[in-house]
């Protein structure tokens, strides 16, 4: 497959993404300091809990946690084994490639560090997304939800650019074991991010149909769980694949 000529577009898009992220971070920080929860009296808390109880007509669960939240916790635990197997395969084959290019020939640490930063930043935005819908502020929810979505999309843009670049350098899926394990592991993570991005976009659109409300904040919460998990996994992958290549002691 001939490398697509997407490079300029992606570069432009990425720069734009970084810019957007910086602006959003500023807003996020301002918002965070504004909205620190005031200390509530016990009476206030009880009133809030009653309100919650009225809002939920659902069948009570044994633990009090919603089923869907437990589902995602268990699913993510299962997903850990999924990534665990891939990381195992990567580590077993680390340094076993018979032909180049080898990791340090192709890696651009600065670029990947920026994209990592953007993905981690999106986790912060996700927290704000959830917090705003829990307060019932639909406008802010849309804003942060879309920001998280943009960050995710930017990360994917960086990944596509990176893959393009690697292929240009001669590292393909079947070139060597490094190529196979690298593309499979980061690709699987990329698919997870892509699913998350679709999910966020879905929620964003759904909020205009009236589907996202304060009472259904749990829907946003589970999306957040998933999104944070995908970020945490990326920290592991980034450490295993990129940071471990850095020469020790500078």
């Amino acid at each position: 497959m001939e490398a697509l000529k997407l490079q300029p577009v992606i570069t432009a898009f990425s720069v734009f993404g970084v810019f957007v992220c910086i602006v959003l971070t500023y807003y996020a920080l301002v918002n965070l300091f504004k909205s620190f929860p005031r200390i509530r009296s016990k009476k206030d808390k009880e009133a809030i809990m009653d309100e919650d109880a009225d809002a939920h007509h659902h069948v009570e669960t044994y633990t009090g946690e919603p089923n869907i939240k437990l589902f995602w916790w268990v699913f993510l635990a299962s997903d850990c084994m999924f990534f665990g197997s891939l990381i195992t395969a990567y580590l077993i084959y680390k340094g076993q490639s018979l032909v180049g290019p080898y990791p340090l020939d192709v890696f651009d640490m600065e670029l990947t560090t920026i994209s990592t930063f953007i993905l981690l930043l999106s986790s912060f935005f996700m927290v704000l997304t959830l917090s705003s819908i829990q307060k019932g502020d639909l406008g802010k929810f849309r804003f942060w939800c879309f920001s998280t979505f943009l960050c995710g999309l930017t990360f994917l843009g960086f990944q596509v650019y990176e893959f393009e670049h690697f292929i240009h350098e001669g590292l393909r899926l079947k070139t060597n074991l490094f190529g196979s394990t690298f593309y499979l592991l980061t690709g699987t993570h990329g698919v997870h991010v892509a699913i998350g991005v679709l999910w966020l976009l879905g929620m964003f659109i759904y909020s205009f149909w009236g589907g996202i409300t304060k009472e259904r904040a749990i829907e946003v919460e589970i999306a957040g769980l998933y999104w944070h998990f995908v970020d945490v996994v990326w920290i592991v992958i980034f450490s295993v694949i990129y940071l471990m290549e850095l020469p020790i002691g500078g």
Partner: peptide
């Protein structure tokens, strides 16, 4: 992937195991 996309995870000739 080994069978259909040419990776070499289980091919000893290419360093796989």
């Amino acid at each position: 992937m080994d069978r259909n996309y040419g990776t070499t995870f289980f091919q000893t000739a290419a360093g796989g195991d």
